[in-house]
Amino acid sequence: MSAEPAVEVADLVVQYAGAMVLRGVSLRVQPGEVLALLGPSGSGKSTLLHTVAGFLAPSAGTVRLGGRTVAGNGRPLPPERRDLAVVFQNYALWPHLSALDTVAYPARRRGAGRAQARREALAIMERLRIAHLADRRPAELSGGEQQRVGLARALARRPSVYLFDEPTAHLDTHVRGVFLEELLARRRDTGAAAVYATHDAEEALGLADRVALLRDGQLVQVGTPQQVYDEPVDLFAARLTGPASVIDAPDGSGTLLVRPGWARLGGPVEAELRGVWFRGPHSDHLVRSPLGELLIREAGAPRHQVGARVGWTLVHGWPLAGPDG
């Protein structure tokens, strides 16, 4: 594996139907690293992936894969000559091909014979435990099954970079869990780099080595999951990465971000309990205190009624910068 970044985009600008969708994005993904692109819909996640894949041509900036410039230097390299695979949000399975032939497609394009390509495809499908679906067409598969076939097709490409375009957006919660587990296991096997677009904070934080936060076609923050969760650069980043309360700092120095686990009930600060939600493993309490409203998460079932006067203690806070915060 080369020392060059697996993916490197620099000052990327993409215009689409007259509107500027990406406005100067620079990112690096090292070999073997998983980068999550986290942003609300319309923030440019898909556009960034499509530009890296070669479905869109940037109007400025460069895309490099493994040290090789594929866009931004004359005519962009077409997708089939870039060393990457894509898992699509809507699966993008070909309705006229069986699951087996779909997974065999990349090998066929590499020049393998039909029998050889099918053998390889079946081996991959066996590893993903979907070999029993080999003869089915997409119309005969559930969403989760379709997406695993899509994943198998991407694996069959044997690329250095995987691009995931919100692959779990259309999946039910439990199917999503199964798919993500499979995804992580396969990625460990291959050691390839991956860029994973999602609008789900939990998914991004749990999956990635680093998280890039995107808003209106610009990067807001890039860092490890801990960094973006514990030390978001502004309120937007804070809200994007998880539940967040904003209160006045007790010392009057500005505003403070408090995650639900950063304060606990019981203590010196007086407050009124405005709402209580039992969530199973834990309960959320919304308290109103002179410093502002904040959410406090405690293990187990709720111990207070709405309207009760409670005390609470601030364990940790993160000062938010900017007028936005």
């Binding site: 070669g54 479905f55 695979a85 894509v86 993008a92 497609y105 490409r157």
Partner: peptide
């Protein structure tokens, strides 16, 4: 759909191959 052709491109098919194996078949 464009994604079906994109999936073929990114699986290693050139534009003519995509036309032959995906677009015209569909």
């Amino acid at each position: 759909e464009p994604d079906l052709e994109r999936a073929a491109r990114v699986s290693g098919a050139g534009s003519v191959t995509v036309l032959r194996t995906i677009t015209l078949r569909l």
